Amino acid sequence: MICVIHTEGDSAEWTFPADPTAVRTARTVVRSQLRTWGLDPLCDVTALLVSELVTNALRHATGPIGVRLVRPSEPLGALLVEVSDPLPNPPLERVAHPEDEGGRGLQLVASSSRRWGTRPGETGKTVWFELGPPY
């Protein structure tokens, strides 16, 4: 089940249950919204990074997962992407060894985005990143 909270104007938000299908659904709705905004060149990288962060939320937190996009307000501004979950602890960036199956999600976010970070929320935390031009 997906709950669309707001998809008008310069932002779009969704809430997903803590279910493995959330990753695929989040990729789909993010791609669709970026196409609606004319930000097609950002679809692949945004969908990849959102799926990494939603996967992390599924692994480490219980409860709903929020995804929010904020469209750039200026022609060459940054797209803001936020993924929230009810776990208050910030994610730990670690160095994955070549034989490790996981542990590269935050490295991927850090290397693919303009900036990224975490902040506490009322009921958990938000991991955010910005993607800038070219688009």
Rank of each mutant, 00 (worst) to 15 (best):
L76D: 15
V83A: 02
R119I: 10
L131C: 11
D100H: 10
V127N: 00
G66V: 00
T62M: 00
T36C: 03
P120Y: 10
R114V: 14
T123W: 05
T36G: 09
V45P: 04
E99M: 08
G132V: 09
V30C: 10
L92E: 14
T21A: 12
L53N: 02
S113P: 11
W128Y: 15
V67I: 05
L49S: 06
E13C: 12
G105Q: 04
G132K: 09
L53V: 02
T7E: 12
T126I: 14
A110I: 07
N89W: 06
R59L: 07
T36V: 10
S111C: 13
L106T: 06
A96N: 09
H6C: 14
F129H: 04
V30M: 03
V29P: 00
S112W: 07
I2M: 06
I65V: 15
L87E: 06
T7R: 13
S111Q: 12
E99T: 15
L42Q: 10
I5H: 11
V70K: 05
P88K: 01
R114I: 11
P75L: 13
G9F: 13
R94N: 07
T36Q: 14
T7V: 15
T28A: 07
L42T: 04
R94W: 00
S51C: 05
P120G: 14
E13A: 13
H97K: 10
T28V: 09
D44K: 04
R27E: 07
V4D: 09
C3Y: 00
